[in-house]
Every structure is written in C-alpha cells, then in structure tokens.
C-alpha cells in the first residue's frame, strides 16, 4: 500500500532521513521505533506531505532549506510532490505527536470540524464509530478539548484523524506522555482501529506498550533504518531488547 524508497531528507546540510526504504501493506499495523531525533517525525511528515508545507514556509521565512529526495508510493502512485490536502483525500491521514486538538472547542465540535470533507450523515456515522472505539469520549462530548487530560486528548486526536476516513493512518508517538495503564488501553484501541481495516503506521520511542499489538516493526537510528522484522524477530533481537524494551 505504502512504499518508501531511498528517502533522503536534508535540513540545510544535516541529513535527517538517510536512505530509508520501507513498506506497509494493506491491513498491517507497522511500527517505527527510534529514540529522540531518530527521524521518526520527519518520516511521518514526509509521508503525510506536511514537510512540503514546512519546506515552503521555511523558504519564505528564509529559514532552513529542506531538501526531499527519493520516492514515496501510495497504492502504486508517486506522491512525493503531492499537496498534503490531496493526500488526505486519498486516505493518508496523520495524527500528529503531542495530541494537537482545537483547545477552545468541545469534543463534538472537534470531531465535526475533522469531518469537513464529508456529508452530514457520514459525519454522524463517523462520530458514532469514534465513540465506539473510544467510549470515554462519548461521556465527555460537551467538554472543551483544552480541559481534557492528556490521554483523553490523545484519544480525541486519534478520533479526529479517524473522522477523515483514513485508509492509511499515520500515528506519530500516540503513547507519548501517557501513564502505562493508559498506554495499554490506547494500544488496544489502535489494534481495534487496525482490525477495522485501516492500515496503520505508528512511531514510538518505547517499544514495550506497542510490542503486543504490532505485526511488523522497523528500528530507526540517526535517520537510518537499522533493523526490521516481524514482532517475534524484534522481540528476539538483543539490541532492540536492550535499547527499546529496557530488558
């Protein structure tokens, strides 16, 4: 479904993503593991197209020059130069890190804004689906998003992403800053999302909470993919164990 080939991303003269090739097929739940500054977020931004926007803004501001090279194919089509809005219409939806939500709107409004591309009926159905996956949100639907807890905001952010009807859902560090209990809960929800037929690519710093749910995983270090394999292979690899599982 998604194929990234020989991706190179430069921030000015620094190499943020160094020759990364990865593949996600239909219905899979794939994780990209890596520490801070490994290039996970840049990878997500490249696939979602956000980087093109950042690139343009930096260029106008006279800031860092961002160079993107390589190929990103989605369902057989080259999309590396496509606008992010167009990619969303084709089903690539990014859920950014640190759960960005519209803080001054309530939960229901947040979800409605996110369903902007669809008809009123579809939005209603979508909201029901989100509430089915995250039952907590139903109870909080009239509360302002800024007043939700971190975990609830993360659920809302995931709900917002789901409202755009993704076929490929990109989740950037969804478990960041949550308690272990909530992490497990959210991981189960992510698995549920995947089970409903939405291909999911997750990035994470700590492998432990998402290890049980993923099909395959890649390990990134300093912009390079250093290891890839299915869950068992990842669990067995001694380096991954020591670095990301804390064993």
């Amino acid at each position: 479904m998604l194929q990234v080939r020989n991706l190179l991303v430069f921030f000015e003269n620094a190499l943020a993503i160094n020759d990364v090739s990865l593949e996600v097929s239909q219905g899979e739940l794939v994780a990209v593991l890596g520490s801070n500054s490994a290039g996970k977020t840049t990878l997500m931004n490249t696939v979602s197209g956000l980087l093109l926007d950042i690139q343009k803004k930096e260029q106008r501001r006279g800031g860092e020059r961002i160079t993107i090279m390589g190929r990103v194919e989605y369902e057989g089509r080259e999309i590396i130069q496509q606008k992010p809005s167009l990619r969303v219409k084709q089903g690539i939806v990014l859920c950014q890190e640190r759960h960005p939500v519209f803080r001054d709107s309530d939960v229901l409004e947040n979800l409605r804004i996110a369903g902007y591309l669809y008809t009123r009926r579809e939005v209603k159905e979508g909201i029901e689906k989100v509430f089915a996956i995250f039952p907590v949100l139903r109870r909080l639907r009239k509360r302002r998003a800024g007043l939700l807890s971190g975990g609830e905001q993360q659920m809302l952010a995931a709900g917002i992403a789901l409202m755009a009807r993704p076929r490929l859902l990109l989740m950037d560090e969804p478990l960041l800053g949550l308690s272990p209990l909530l992490q497990a809960e959210l991981a189960a929800s992510i698995k549920e999302i995947c089970r409903q037929g939405i291909t999911t690519l997750v990035t994470e710093q700590f492998a432990r909470p998402i290890m049980p749910i993923i099909d395959r995983g890649y390990v990134m270090e300093n912009g390079r993919l250093v290891f890839s394999g299915n869950r068992e292979e990842l669990m067995d690899n001694p380096e991954v164990k020591s670095a990301y599982l804390g064993v």
Partner: peptide, 9 residues
C-alpha cells in the same frame, strides 16, 4: 544523478 543545493555559512 541526484543534485542538491548545499548552503554554508
């Protein structure tokens, strides 16, 4: 042949 613009201060 990939060519990119490099910038140095």
């Amino acid at each position: 042949v990939k060519i990119r613009r490099k910038r140095l201060d």
